[in-house]
């Protein structure tokens, strides 16, 4: 068993709370993404789990064991750093077996694990090179190799793909996911990229200002955002948010915000639906984004397939099905039950 459990964990940096009573359960063998804007406490949470920072309050359990006060080496976790943290003076092979060497794993066993990892990651031809002689993607693999040979049941990754170019990033996303499932690791993955979180993770934990905003499957976060923050963060372009009074005349007035995803809105002739004026069209090939403005104040994005030929400045009506509507309390941004 290698589930990870955080119970009301707090970390303060001086007077600011970097992590504010975070409670989280990660099941064994799950890939959980910690997602959020920079400074939201996701990396600090990861470092608390790794033991690189000490928790000020709360408890951390890994595999049923209380590790809150244990040093990193005794927590049974492996970690991949954003900068990869490869030792520049050691070869690829030496980097990968570094941990096995300092833990005095027998030579034969070391070799077996090195060979297995090199085979798995396609590093066979690079074992005698030094990190400076590798490309970014190869360094990334070496860092992964170092994490897998430890055979730790829990692996932590701190923005591991952020230094790679877009194409490589997409490829590595799939590889890391495949690797995690092949080895049955529990993987906690920090990222600020919602695509990474949505495509790789079993569960996504969206954080904001040191707190968990929502914890659920990618579909849950997209389809039932718990707050306006989640609604705005997940999905690109973001969900449209309108005051209730604007969205539908005579509705519960200004205490409610109504959210509608751009793909759920359709454009119709003026006079029906919400009156708006077409401001610009962003053509993206497979789809087009229609940027409309309602009442000279609220910007509404409509996503339509293919190319749209409509006149800029034209008056249009915007309609959407009632069940595509998300309702949030205006005061605190939390989701409220649909009527």
């Amino acid at each position: 068993m290698s589930d990870v459990h955080l119970n009301a964990v707090v970390k303060n940096w001086g007077t600011t709370r970097a992590v504010d009573r975070v409670s989280l359960h990660v099941n064994s063998g799950e890939l959980v993404a910690l997602l959020g804007p920079s400074g939201c406490g996701k990396s600090t949470t990861l470092r608390l789990i790794a033991g690189l920072e000490g928790a000020d309050e709360g408890e951390i359990h890994i595999g049923g064991r209380d590790v809150t006060r244990l040093p990193p080496a005794q927590r049974g976790v492996a970690m991949v750093f954003q900068s990869y943290a490869l030792f520049p003076h050691l070869t690829v092979a030496e980097n990968i077996v570094f941990g096995l060497q300092v833990r005095r794993v027998p030579v034969a066993e070391r070799k077996r694990r090195l060979d297995a990892a090199a085979e798995l990651l396609g590093l066979g031809a690079l074992l005698d090179r030094r990190p400076a002689q590798l490309s970014g993607g190869q360094r990334q693999r070496v860092a992964l190799g170092r994490a897998i040979v430890a055979e730790a049941a829990v692996c932590l990754m701190d923005e591991p793909l952020s230094n790679l170019d877009a194409q490589l990033r997409q490829q590595m996303r799939q590889e890391i996911r495949a690797l995690q499932q092949h080895l049955g690791m529990t993987l906690i993955y920090v990222t600020h990229d919602q695509t990474e979180a949505m495509t790789m993770a079993d569960k996504v934990v969206l954080m904001r200002a040191g707190r968990i905003e929502q914890h659920g499957s990618p579909a849950e976060l997209y389809e039932r955002p718990a707050s306006t923050f989640v609604a705005g963060f997940i999905g690109c372009p973001a969900m449209n948010l309108l005051p209730g009074s604007a969205a539908r005349a005579g509705d519960p007035a200004d205490s409610i915000l109504i959210g509608v995803r751009p793909e759920h809105i359709a454009v119709c002739e003026p006079g029906r639906g919400l009156p708006a004026q077409l401001e610009t069209i962003e053509y993206l090939g497979a789809e087009s984004m229609l940027i409309c403005r309602h009442d000279d104040a609220h910007r509404i994005t409509v996503r339509m397939p293919g190319r749209v030929t409509a006149g800029i400045g034209e008056r249009v009506g915007l309609v959407w099905p009632a069940d595509a509507e998300h309702r949030f309390a205006r005061e605190h941004g939390h989701r409220v039950a649909s009527t």
């Binding site: 990193p72 943290a85 520049p88 570094f98 300092v102 833990r103």
Partner: peptide
């Protein structure tokens, strides 16, 4: 020397002494 190198070594189970001799000292050469 990036601090992550020390942290990575720490996570891999290297003691303070091992971190010095295997990471810091060679990088100071």
């Amino acid at each position: 020397i990036p601090p992550e190198l020390g942290e990575a070594a720490q996570l891999e189970g290297a003691s303070r002494w091992q971190r010095f001799w295997r990471v810091t000292f060679p990088l100071l050469m």
